[in-house]
Nucleic acid binder design. Sequence first.
DNA 1: TGACTTTTTGCAGGAAATTGCCCCAAACAT
DNA 2: ATGTTTGGGGCAATTTCCTGCAAAAAGTCA
Lengths: 249, 249
Amino acid sequence: MLKKERQALILREINIHNKVILTDLSAKLEVSEDTVRRDLQELAEAGKIIKVRGGALSKSYHVYSYKENEIYAYQEKTIIARKAITLLRDGMLVLISGGSTNLELARILPADLRITFLTNSLSTAMQLQEHPNSETIFLGGLLSKTTGIAVGGEVVRTLHDIKPDLCLMGVNGIDATEGLTENDFEVVTIKKAMLESSKKIAALTIAEKLNSVQNLRVCKLNHLDYLITELDPAKEELAKYRELGIELM
Amino acid sequence: MLKKERQALILREINIHNKVILTDLSAKLEVSEDTVRRDLQELAEAGKIIKVRGGALSKSYHVYSYKENEIYAYQEKTIIARKAITLLRDGMLVLISGGSTNLELARILPADLRITFLTNSLSTAMQLQEHPNSETIFLGGLLSKTTGIAVGGEVVRTLHDIKPDLCLMGVNGIDATEGLTENDFEVVTIKKAMLESSKKIAALTIAEKLNSVQNLRVCKLNHLDYLITELDPAKEELAKYRELGIELM
DNA sequence: TGACTTTTTGCAGGAAATTGCCCCAAACAT
DNA sequence: ATGTTTGGGGCAATTTCCTGCAAAAAGTCA
C-alpha cells in the first residue's frame, strides 16, 4: 500500500463518515497506529482534516472534489455564505452563479430549507445535489473548461423565461464608480442575463475585492440590492457603497 | 522489450488500476527496478502519471472522488469503455448518457481525441471537463437527486434540435424480446428522446444485465446499432442479439 | 562493413524516506 | 487520585531513491 494511496483512503473515509477513529483505521489499513497517526498529522498540516485526540474530523460534509484548503480566503467566504443564507426563505426560486463563495454557501445550506436553485455551475450543482430538501435546475449549455460553468446563448435564452426571486452573484471586481466587472466575455454575457431576469440581486464578495476593476463591465452598482462581505456593515470602507442605496450585510 | 512499449504497458496498467507498485512492475516486465523507476520518472515528467514513493498513481486518482472500488464490476466496465472508444472519431458529436460505464469511458478517453460531447449527467460532465481536447455541452434541466442527471421537458426539447452522430447509452435492463428497459419514468422519457435524435446508437452493458427486464420499456432492440459488452462478440450467449441485426463489439 | 556516438540498462554505494517499536508524558475517564 | 488511553520523540530496520559509472545495445556515418 502506497503512502499517498493510504492517505487518500483516509480522506475518503473522513468525507463519508465525517470522522475517523485512529485505531479503526489502523486495523482497516493494516498498518501500525503510529503510521496512521503520522498520516493524520500530515493531512491535518495540509489543512485537509481536523486532527483530534483519537482520530480526526472532516472539515466539511461535501463529497465532491471541492478542497477547502485550496479555496482562497476560506474563513471569510464562510462568513459571507452564512450572511447570504439569511436571505433565503422556503419556496424561493434562487439563481446562484459559480465561484467558491457560492460553493461554500451550497455546502453549509441548512438542511431544512426548501429552495429551488437555478445554476449554471457544475461544481455548485454537484454540491446542491447533496442537499436533502432543495431542488436544483441546471442551466445547460457549452461548458467552459476554465470555469466549469455553462455559457452561451442557450443559457441566456433559458434565463429569459425565468423570474427568480433572488440572484446570488459571485463577484470578480467591484468598484463604486465602475460597478461590477469581469475579465471573461462569456461570463459577462451570462451575468447580464442573470441580472435582468432576477427580482433581487445580492453580490457576494470578500472585502479584498472591493474597489478593484476588471476589463469588462457587467453593470453599474445601482442594479444591486444587497452587498455581502465578511465585514461589519457599519465599517467605514463600505460607506460609499451604502450611499449608492445598496443594502449592506 | 522496447522502452516505448514498456512505458505504454505501464500507462495501461495505471489506467486500469489507478496505481502501480514499482517492484511489481519490475517483476512483471522482467527489467530492473532502476529501469522501471526511470520509466516512471519520464512518464511523470511528461505529466501522464503522478510519481510517488514506491510506485505511481493515475492522474485522475485525486481528481474528484471517483472511487473505482465502489463501482460494481469495475474491470468489466473498463473493457466496455475501451471498446466503445474505438467508435469515436475526431469531430464527432456524441451524446453520452449517465451511468458508471460512461463515467469510466470519460475517464480513460485518449487525450488526443477531439469530440463534442452532449450529456445530461453531472458526474459524466465533470469527468469530461478534465479532457484536454474535447468540448462538453450540458443538457440542462431539473436535476434528479437519485441519479444526478437532468430530466424533464427541457432536456427533451433541446434534444429535438440536435442530431448527434452517435449515442453511447448506458443500460439498465436488456432482453432480446422485451428490448431496453428501465425502472424510472423520467429516465425512460430522456432515453427515448436520445434514441430518436441520434444517427447511431450504441448500448453499453455488462454481460450480467443481458436478458434482464425492468418495468418500463425504452425501445425494442431493432433501434440499436451496436451492443458493447465485456465479452468476446463471438460468444454463444450473444447469438440472439446478433440475429436481431445488432453489431456486437 | 566497421568505427564511432548515443541511448539504454543494470549495478553499487550512500542518502533519504517510511515504518514499527519503545518509553515517557499528557490527556482523559472513573 | 489512580489507572487507562493517546500523543510525541527517538531509534533502528527496511525500503526506496539518487548519483555516478560501465557495459551492452542501438543508431550513425563514412
